[in-house]
Amino acid sequence: MPPSRTKTIKNKHAANKSGIKSSKQSKSGPPDGVAKTKRKGPAPPSKEVKGKSAADLLKKKKKKVYTEKELGIPQLNMVTPIGVTKPKGKKKGKVFVDDKESMSTMLALVQADKKGEIESKMIKARQMEEIREARKLEAEKKGEERKAKLDETKESLRKKRKRTHVSEGESEEKGLIKDASTTGTKAARPKKRVAFA
């Protein structure tokens, strides 16, 4: 605990210099634990006050005469919040709009505002619509391309099959296969039939 020790020493010096007998610091001689705690709390302000002469004290009191308003310090813990307070120079009460000119100017302002708002909305909507259309077209195009590719592959596969059949060669065999396939399908058909009672 070295810092606390140094503090106590300083305080002692200050008390001696000031020469105030009744001060707590001068009295607080015994190294009591309780007394120490008492000293720690109010020590810093008393240190400053008691470190200067009576004249200084008087001067300080004069300085404290400044009101809070003069200092311009933001006021805290008020009933009305800081932002709500009205500016000083303004007239009290409501400002009514009843004459024709002010009403029409206000109306013109509001209308211009709304017009701009609606126009911007419409422009935005149009742009979005264009983007949507473009996307739709693109999607359609892609779909068509895909379809074309699929058809192509199908065609190529069919051709390949035909070619393989041709390479195997014999038309009789082909005929036979065909017959078999037709008979096969014909034979298969009655199998699939289901009769309900």
């Binding site: 400002v95 009514f96 709009v97 009403m103 206000m106 109306l107």
Partner: peptide
């Protein structure tokens, strides 16, 4: 009473 400036602008905005 007549409308104040603020009130008038809110009413006109809504109507607009």
């Amino acid at each position: 009473r007549a409308l104040t400036e603020e009130e008038m602008s809110t009413v006109l905005k809504k109507l607009a």
